[in-house]
Nucleic acid binder design. Structure first.
Length: 607
RNA sequence: GCCCUAGUGGCUUAGGCGGUAGAGCGAUGCCUUGGUAAGGCAUAGGUCGGGGGUUCGAAUCCCCCCUGGGGCUCCA
């Protein structure tokens, strides 16, 4: 905020005509005269919107400070846009100016405010003494940004319906111990690079795009395929659960009050667009889902109702130093399910169903999740029974955080984290009980008594961001490197079977075998390059192909072939049908997409 | 964002206390038609991350910026 303070003999003004953003005023405010007034010309700036309370407080204290020195009869706040080249939104400015006026009055000053958004003529007579002209730039002081004396959370282990002390708890799970240490700030870092970064590039899944902003990736065909398969997976999962997929815009106008207030909770990590309209890129699908829901006509018969969207992309302006590989990005893809529930009982029931859904993703991906259950102290006291039961659904001890008071929109949430190679959590699925957004976004439903009511909304991401799922899968290969060769689950492997013809005369057979396997929905390719068998085998291994078959004279004559099985490092004899059914069994229930690459390796681009 | 550290062909890198760079993989071509983790030979490919400065001359010294990695902090 910029202010120009003039200690005047008098100020006279008169409104001339309205602008689009003019506030409605009574006739008596259309002109006015103030004698011996400290006139505060004020411009509210964009950055002020991040913490308007703090800005108002600082501005008022500055004005009081000056007023104490020059001792005017009156203080007049005069909206004056021309002091800044980076103005805040008119809505925010009006709010700030009004709050300044009332705060000054509370402090015993005779304060007035000149109407906002009008063209005005004015006449001012400056007293001309040394303190009669002052200007100030008022900014949010970072160290004052709340923080102050925030009460710490209480931490427990919740196991078999018992609250246990973390200090004395005997951890059976190495991963839960690591998660607990990390959350309590006890984990020592090794200074190593997480292995998934090298892997994602080496395998041509994804890479950085230096010409974009930090934390935005380019995805190559293999990576794109994996993303698509995971997207299909979540889509199937949530539609099976009963949610309805929608798609909403990726940017929102901060002039909308509900959107601005919700966004403010996100603080400085908002990704703003520098356009004339003050637009913010979404950091999740909440905005879109809430707008859809608030414009829908909901009745108790509809509830619970789920709206699902895969946010390609969500944007968060994470600090530069926090952005890392697939783990923390500024642009990422998150499955986002919002479930409208009529009351807390229904919300709790749905929450439990969603726990099952989140847990299932861990089983399907073969990723071990450790769980943090969180709640405000009030919620925990009132719903102990439910929390204990819900934690039981995890089937192992969970970490419990009790927050002294609500500081976000949720009163309880459950976070599922995979543990990476360096022992740090990768936050994946999450479920939250949101008690604020219904009212804020004007989402209502008609209850059984024909009354309008605000619902409770569950937020759920059954897998966490797609990028983090891939991150977890890659990290897992590094964790297990001593036990087995690194590999992706077959349903996610870009190439599922690689055929290696030995000589040109084996090409026709290899190609026709490949076509047959392809017809059974198997991603198969043929290494038709003029290289030695040894080299092609090696190549297939470095690409993590789960099944590799060498095609030579023997295979032309028999209907069996020796299959190299990567996972077990074993060779096994199969015929075509046996192999097909083995793979089909392996990928059962998982989505399929065809190979998005040329079948012949000689035709492939090296990314 | 702050602190530390790095940036040399598509990838991995050698070399540099000032005189415009060398390799391996990969790519391409030729030879080899080969049976389970790198066959041989040859060729192409680099204004040494970008910009500015100092200098007769900068990949090398100085400044700024960009990008990566680590740490702090943060994480709905």
């Amino acid at each position: 905020m910029r202010i120009l303070l003039i200690h005047s003999d008098y100020l006279r003004y008169k409104t001339k005509s309205k602008t689009k953003i003019a506030e409605e005023i009574e006739d008596k405010k259309k002109s006015g005269e103030f004698e011996n007034a400290l006139v505060v010309f004020t411009a509210v700036e964009k950055e002020d919107e991040l913490n308007t309370d703090e800005i108002v407080r600082s501005a008022v204290s500055e004005i009081i400070n000056v007023s104490d020195q020059v001792k005017p009869d009156k203080v007049v706040i005069y909206p004056y846009a021309h002091l800044s080249s980076s103005l805040g939104s008119p809505q925010a400015a009006k709010k700030v100016l009004m709050e300044m006026e009332s705060k000054l009055k509370e402090n015993g000053l005779n304060a007035s405010r000149i109407p906002f958004g009008w063209y005005k003529s004015f006449e001012i007579s400056c007293k001309g003494h040394p303190l009669s002209e002052l200007s100030r730039t008022i900014t949010i002081k970072p160290e004052e940004k709340e923080k102050a004396a925030e009460e710490p959370s209480k931490w427990y282990i919740l196991s078999k319906g018992e609250l246990l002390d973390i200090e004395t708890f005997k951890f059976e799970s190495e991963d839960l111990k690591k998660l607990t240490d990390y959350e309590l700030g006890k984990l020592e870092s090794t200074g190593e690079e997480p292995p998934h970064i090298k892997l994602m590039r080496e395998k041509s899944f994804a890479d950085y795009e230096p010409s974009a902003d930090v934390g935005h990736l380019r995805w190559y065909p293999k990576g794109r395929l994996i993303r698509d398969l995971l997207s299909d997976y979540v889509y199937n999962l949530v539609t099976e659960y009963g949610a309805m997929p929608v798609e909403t815009p990726i940017m929102y106008d901060l002039a909308d009050d509900a959107i601005r207030v919700h966004a403010d909770k996100f603080g400085e990590r908002q990704y703003r667009m520098g356009t004339k309209k003050d637009l913010m890129l979404r950091y999740a699908c909440c905005f879109g889902a809430f707008r859809v829901l608030s414009d829908s006509f909901l009745t108790w018969k509809n509830l619970p109702v789920g709206i699902y969207e895969l946010s390609t992309y969500s944007f968060r302006l994470e600090k530069k130093g926090e952005v890392v590989g697939l783990k923390r990005l500024r642009g990422f893809t998150m499955p986002d399910l919002h479930t409208v529930c009529g009351d807390m009982i229904q919300a709790m029931e749905e929450f439990n169903k969603q726990i099952s859904m989140c847990a299932k993703t861990g089983e399907d991906f073969k990723i071990n999740y450790e769980v943090i259950f969180r709640a405000t102290a009030d919620f925990f006291e009132e719903n102990k029974e439910w929390m204990f039961q819900s934690a039981q659904k995890i089937g192992k001890p969970v970490l419990l955080e009790i927050l002294p008071r609500r500081k976000h929109y949720w009163i309880s949430k459950m976070d599922f984290a995979a543990i990476d190679y360096l022992g740090r959590p990768i936050e994946n699925p999450t479920i939250q009980i949101d008690v604020e957004s219904g009212e804020r976004f004007g989402i209502t439903y008609i209850n059984e008594n024909e009354e309008e009511e605000y619902p409770i909304i569950l937020h759920c991401s059954p897998t966490g961001s797609i990028e983090r799922v891939i991150c977890s899968l890659l990290e897992k290969t590094a964790v297990e490197i001593d036990e087995k060769p690194p590999i992706l689950p077959t349903w996610l492997s870009p190439t599922q079977i690689r055929l290696i013809p030995i000589a040109e005369r084996h090409m026709d057979f290899a190609t026709s075998l490949a076509e047959d396997l392809k017809a059974s929905n198997i991603r198969v390719d043929v290494d038709d390059r003029h290289e030695t068998v040894g080299k092609k085998i090696r190549n297939s291994a470095t690409e993590w192909v789960p099944y590799t078959i060498v095609i030579g004279d023997k295979e032309l004559e028999s209907d069996k072939f020796m299959v190299n099985i990567r996972e077990t490092r074993e060779k096994e004899l199969f015929n075509k049908d046996e192999l097909t059914s083995k793979i089909q069994k392996e990928v059962m229930g998982m989505p399929f997409r065809p190979l998005p690459l040329p079948m012949n390796l000689s035709r492939r681009v090296n990314f």
